[in-house]
Simulated scan of single mutants.
Amino acid sequence: MAPPAGKRVKGLQIFRPFVYGTTALPFDDKTNPRPDGIPDDHTHSWTVFVKGIDDVDITYWLRRVQFKLHESIPNHVRMVEGEKGKPFAVHETGWGEFEIAIKLYYVPESGEKPQTVYHHLRLHPYGRTDEEKETMRLNGGEVISWVYEEQIFNEPYDAFYDILTSGAVPPPLPGKSGTATTTTTTGGSSSGGKGGGKSAKEKEKDRKEQQLQLQHRSEGGVLERSAMIPLTNRPGQPFSRETEQVEVKKLKDALVKVEELSRKVTEDLKRKEQRLAELKADAAKPVV
């Protein structure tokens, strides 16, 4: 693929979060009846997908996705074109688990080659404990196996940089007119419009209005075309700052346990070394 026209933005790295994985649900006469024509040995319906965090649109940087399923499945290589506001997804039924190759094709402006990730279809909960297994279940008994990922674009081309950083518009606050200005998330900065000849007082008012809108927006979902993730978990949206803090706490607690175990092992080793030295000293004494 020929690189797009224009220069690269040197020294810049932009990332965009997304989720990929599978969701499976066993056939049940009440909640998930088996459709007509489905083989009797198929036990589950399942979906493999790639989508944006909080279901935001990602087709501005991801053009299409190829899902390579098990060879026993008819038409096992599926190409899904991007459709604004919808996930890239394949729906199927089956009885066995297997690895799925997911190939990501970026928009032409990116100049990026396709990349492949791999994901194991899970029809049944897994984990070391019952608690870990239960975390794989959504309301209704669906088994989820999802992965949070961040797509990194190093030194993007000018045209692609404009695509990545445009359109991040917060919604108006309740009771306010919808005149929000455009914001970007690269480098932790934001930029607004030129002001159109407004007075300094009007510009300052607009700036404060924008800050309030961004604050209001950050309490809920995700700004379009941004690197944000939600602050809290919601049904069907397990990835958020809240999730991140829970995982950080787990890692800190585990680190404390490891350090305590390491301390005990070190003390035990010192006692054994001391005892070994004593035995060697005793053995070296002449026999009277």
Rank of each mutant, 00 (worst) to 15 (best):
G178A: 15
H124L: 12
E131F: 12
P33C: 08
K113Q: 10
I58F: 02
T116V: 06
H216P: 10
K103Q: 14
R16A: 05
E224K: 14
T93Y: 04
T182G: 07
S190F: 07
N75P: 09
H44T: 00
D29L: 12
E267G: 02
F160Y: 01
P26T: 06
F98Q: 05
H76P: 00
L279G: 07
P156G: 02
G178R: 12
T232G: 04
E247Q: 09
L261Y: 11
H44V: 01
R63W: 05
Y106R: 03
H119W: 02
S190A: 09
S45R: 09
G221F: 08
K250E: 03
P39R: 02
I73C: 05
G141H: 01
K194Q: 10
G11A: 00
I58E: 02
S166N: 04
N139H: 13
V256S: 07
F67S: 01
R63I: 08
L276D: 12
Q215G: 15
I163S: 06
R207K: 13
V107E: 03
A277D: 15
P74Q: 04
S110K: 05
E71S: 10
R122W: 04
D158M: 06
R34K: 15
Y60I: 03
H44K: 01
G127L: 05
T93S: 14
E209P: 03
G221W: 07
P74E: 01
V117Q: 01
A2D: 13
S177I: 14
K86I: 10
P74F: 00
R271D: 13
L214I: 14
K205V: 09
K250D: 02
K103H: 05
Q66K: 03
E224D: 11
P230S: 06
T181F: 06
A24N: 04
N139W: 13
